[in-house]
Nucleic acid binder design. Sequence first.
DNA 1: CGAACAGTTCGCCGGGGACCGAAGCGTTGC
DNA 2: GCAACGCTTCGGTCCCCGGCGAACTGTTCG
Lengths: 232, 232
Amino acid sequence: MTDASGLAGFAALLADRTRAAMCLALLDGRAWTAGELAAHAGVARSTATGHLDRLIGGGLLTEARQGRHRYVRLADPGVAALLEDITARLEPGLPPARGLRAATADAALRRGRTCYDHLAGRLGVAVTDALTSTGRLDQSSGFALTDEGLTWLTDQLGVAPDQLRASRRPLARACLDWTERRPHLGGLAGARMCETFLTRKWLTRIGSGRAVRLTPAGRTALHTLLNLTDLD
Amino acid sequence: MTDASGLAGFAALLADRTRAAMCLALLDGRAWTAGELAAHAGVARSTATGHLDRLIGGGLLTEARQGRHRYVRLADPGVAALLEDITARLEPGLPPARGLRAATADAALRRGRTCYDHLAGRLGVAVTDALTSTGRLDQSSGFALTDEGLTWLTDQLGVAPDQLRASRRPLARACLDWTERRPHLGGLAGARMCETFLTRKWLTRIGSGRAVRLTPAGRTALHTLLNLTDLD
DNA sequence: CGAACAGTTCGCCGGGGACCGAAGCGTTGC
DNA sequence: GCAACGCTTCGGTCCCCGGCGAACTGTTCG
């Protein structure tokens, strides 16, 4: 017989209103920061820290630390499925599937999302790879924009040169993607590029979150500018 | 968004070691009495009462009161499936399916089980119907064994006549089955009949519980004695 | 009727855990 | 360098809830 303590301990993870709210929020498949979850659940950040520790320790969530941020997401699609199974029992069954099915949301997120302020996910990695293979980004010694890269940003994308002025923030920075496990372009250039993609409606945000979707126009533009194809 | 309180409240039902032990015990598909569950979980009966109230109120269990007993079982196969999904997450996944899959156990239980000391479930109802259609049981005015019924018990089944002596316990009694929702034969005659079936190895108990299974010999015997067929 | 038994109600106790605010730490950005 | 920011650690408070036993209700059985 399965240990009753194990079941009870697992259930206890969800048996708190705050932790439940956090898990339900994460059901959208996105990674949230600890502060966002605290605000969403309506508790102090210090309280959220403890809850996240428990949820991660219990295997429901995983974390990815980047800088001063603590990104948290559901540990695996199985957790999402379990949560949806439970919530499906709670509602009289009216809506068959609420919002994005987690696997779908997860895939959408893997495809494309913003990381802080630049492009990440499979899309971000693909763009980074294309920039590299076309000689606009040099990954041989860290991450560095080449002269061609700078020209491309200003002339092709129309980024104002003073928007790329050197500052404390590096122009190009490698940011490790936690789903693709490969670096993508961060830093000032990554932010400006992402900004441009959004304002030109090459990308649209899915819902209120970090997930983004390539528009038909965006698909065409990336094919023209970077010879990128096969973007889902 | 689904209400976090709802999820938390539901999870809280399982977030207690005692309640978890009760639910896991009930995963065998059988109905247990409150006292049995209290002993199994190692708590006082008064404590068990409160837990069962909560589990029933939360929709995880259903109860069927009979006399001084409170029979409790999982509310529906969905609950069993949910419990198995959760426990499957907890164990590293070694055994693919632990014991009887709940749906199977549920079906086995529906097919045949003992109710207190007599035969119930689909099998009990089928036997009762057969006794009625062959003129051995009269359901027109309550439940009463006919003379043919008495003779059948003593001559065909070999029940000693003094084992059927009138006492405070009625000879034949209608007992409402809570899965089939139809009456089956209880009372002294029901108990003696069930006893005989078991000693003659027409029935065997499945595991340590109340579920019973018809043996090949039993199938043959019931076909001969009552013209009963199709007992899966 | 009275004894045995299953279950419930009630009052009480003790511990775990959810919460906050203040202080501290490391990162980011000017 | 300093300020802002995200997060964590630490003490302290409060309350919920699981546990028990004793007394009570209702059923079974001789």
